[in-house]
């Protein structure tokens, strides 16, 4: 009985480590753009609309690849693996949408 329990424990641990390994092998890239004055989702809709059209955006995540936070005036963009990000394009989109970029941060999860 002890052997059976030991075997089950080993199998369970192996399964857990395999799942953890899966997550670690597929890191999730994100960019967070801080936007001056973006306190309203309706008036900053232009930012979401234009950024979601960019080729490096992973539109399968969040809402068309974008997640906004009005309390922090930030726009988080999910980035496709292996794609390069043109920060200048992002800054121009924010200006065209009627705002100014404060900072652009790259994150990996």
């Amino acid at each position: 009985m002890k052997r059976v329990l030991a075997c089950l424990f080993v199998v369970l641990m192996a399964a857990c480590s395999a799942k953890t390994g899966e997550i670690q092998s597929a890191p999730h890239r994100e960019i967070t753009v801080r936007v001056n004055g973006a306190v309203c989702g309706f008036c900053s809709y232009g930012i979401r609309k234009e950024i979601s059209k960019l080729p490096f955006v992973d539109t399968t995540k969040y809402e068309n690849g974008i997640r906004t936070n009005s309390e922090e005036q930030s726009v988080t963009i999910a980035v496709l693996p292996g794609e390069s990000v043109d920060e200048e394009v992002l800054r121009n989109i924010v200006i065209e949408a009627g705002y100014e970029t404060v900072s652009i941060e790259h994150n990996e999860r």
Partner: peptide
């Protein structure tokens, strides 16, 4: 709640973006 939004009538603040 802490999180909330202001009204933005179409004819007032939006569309704020160029070409909108």
């Amino acid at each position: 709640p802490t999180y909330s939004y202001a009204d933005q009538p179409v004819m007032n603040e939006a569309p704020r973006w160029a070409g909108g």
